[in-house]
Structures are given as structure tokens and as C-alpha cells.
Amino acid sequence: MTIAEPASVPTPGTEGTRPLVLNGISKHFGGVVAIKRFDLEVEPGEIVALVGDNGAGKSTLVKIISGLYQPTEGEIWLNGEHTTFRDPSDARTKGVEVVYQDLALVDLQPVYMNLFLGRELRKKPFGTIDRKQMAARTQALVDELDVRIPSAKAALSDLSGGQRQGIAIARATHWASSLVLMDEPTAALGVAETARVEDVILKLKARGAAVLIVSHNMDQVFRIADRVTVLRRGTQVGTRRVAETSHNDIVSLITGLSS
């Protein structure tokens, strides 16, 4: 079964078509500098982790990339095109999807309605909601990502926390054409459910998606990320390839203390 409207993913390594490039992003709130000249590139099929202590600026950066805040300085490029966001809806329209810890799902609706929430498919010529088509496309996607749920027609309220997070990731996967941004997606989950969600994230990577994940869990970062970039007091203090660094090195960057 073909999944409708799949995200278009740039060819890895193609110059100028990286899903996300941030150049010199800064954010000021009056005299307070929350983010100072942040630079980052995220490639197709890459997971980049954003880490830092509380108050480091991670949430502010997430809000800039998702359109809630506009940067004071700097540029955002999506798939080779310079862009600005008016608001989160504009960011979604341009291909940026966000998975939050609180999920933003509707318990009383079935899984397939949550996948198409606000973007429902409609039958022609009368414009009634095409529930059959939405359920079929949702089932195809959760099967591909191995999100283990009873059915696309299951009520969201009947699912576990890990299953719900898997649905939130599947929804982002379906609609993102540039970037999937995840803000502490497993913070409220136990060990077993965290492992299942991480498996879904890795399948998302295998599909060629670009993923930027905010995480406080260093073990998780080293399990799933390709690179990790560190914020300290609003300043980007280092970016490392996970395969070429260590827990101690990253913790030293976060704290500013030598290992």
C-alpha cells in the first residue's frame, strides 16, 4: 500500500539541499541574550541531539525553529531556501514538524484521526471526511515504522504512553518535508517504552528524514544520535560526532568543567 503524500527528502550530500541550516541565530529578550550566534546543519538521514543544562537555551532554540519565536539575528534555510516563519502554522506548512513531550494528541479520537488532525482527507464532490482512506494510510505508515498498536482505528485513550508517542512521531513523519524536531520525546516513559520509541526514531532516520532531538538523557544521545551539539548559557560551545566523543567530553562541555 502506498502512503499518500510522502515527505520529499533531499539526496544525502547534495549541496544546498540540506533539510535544515541555521546561520548565526541569535535571540534577545530586551537586554537578555537567550541565544548567541548558533550555527547548525542537519543532513538527510541524520539525527542531531541538542543538549545543555536547564536554562541553556534549548527551549528557545526549539521555539525559533518551530516558528513560535522569530530570531533577532541570523538565517534559517530549509532544503536550500532561505525562510522565515510567521508562526508555528507557517513552519508546519514549510515542512517542520514537532513532537513534544505532551504529544498534542486527542484522546477521544481514533489513531487515524490524530494522524490527520487539522488536515483531514475529504471525499469529492461533497467534502465529507474520508475516514476509510485516512485509516488505510495511517495503517500503512504505522506498519512501515513498526509502531505496535492494535489498529489505526483504535482509540488513542486505549494506548500506552509509548504507543502514543509512536503515533506522534508517525504523524510528524507523514507531514514533514524538511525536519522532524523532537523535544524530550521519551522523558515521561519507562525503559521498555523508551526503547520502542527509539526504535521508531531510528526507522524514521532510515527513511531519510532529518531529525533534531532535544534530550537530557546522555545514554539515549549515544544510542541514537549521529552528532551532538551543546548549548551553555545561550552559547553553542561545541559539536561532536557521537562516534568520536565520550560521555565525559559532552558533560564537560555542558558544565564548563574540565573532565
Rank of each mutant, 00 (worst) to 15 (best):
A49C: 14
E41T: 12
T83Y: 02
V191T: 15
D158H: 11
L212M: 12
E144Y: 09
Y69K: 00
I3F: 07
E5Y: 13
L202G: 05
T138W: 11
T235M: 10
L121Y: 08
A243P: 05
I35L: 15
E15D: 14
D146Y: 05
I64C: 02
T173C: 13
V9D: 02
A172W: 07
A152D: 12
M218E: 10
L159N: 07
A176G: 12
V251Q: 04
R241V: 09
V147T: 08
G16C: 12
D107F: 03
I169G: 05
K132A: 15
L159K: 05
D146T: 11
L145C: 10
T84L: 01
P185I: 01
K124Q: 15
G52P: 02
G127W: 10
I254K: 04
E5H: 14
A7T: 00
E193K: 03
D87H: 04
S151C: 03
L108I: 12
L121N: 08
V147L: 09
V214H: 02
V147R: 04
L105M: 09
S177I: 01
Y112E: 04
A243H: 09
S8D: 11
T84Q: 06
P19T: 01
S258W: 09
Q220H: 13
T235K: 12
A49L: 08
L121P: 07
T2H: 13
Q139N: 04
R196W: 01
P71T: 03
A187E: 15
V33L: 12
E244P: 03
Q165F: 03
A195K: 14
D226C: 10
A49V: 08
I65K: 00
G13S: 09
N217Y: 11
A168G: 11
L40Y: 13
R232A: 08
H247M: 12
G95K: 00
I65C: 04
A56S: 15
P88L: 02
V48F: 09
G31D: 14
N23G: 01
G16K: 11
G162S: 10
D183T: 04
V21I: 13
A188V: 15
V62Y: 03
V51E: 08
G31R: 15
A195T: 13
S8P: 01
L20C: 10
G52V: 02
T60W: 00
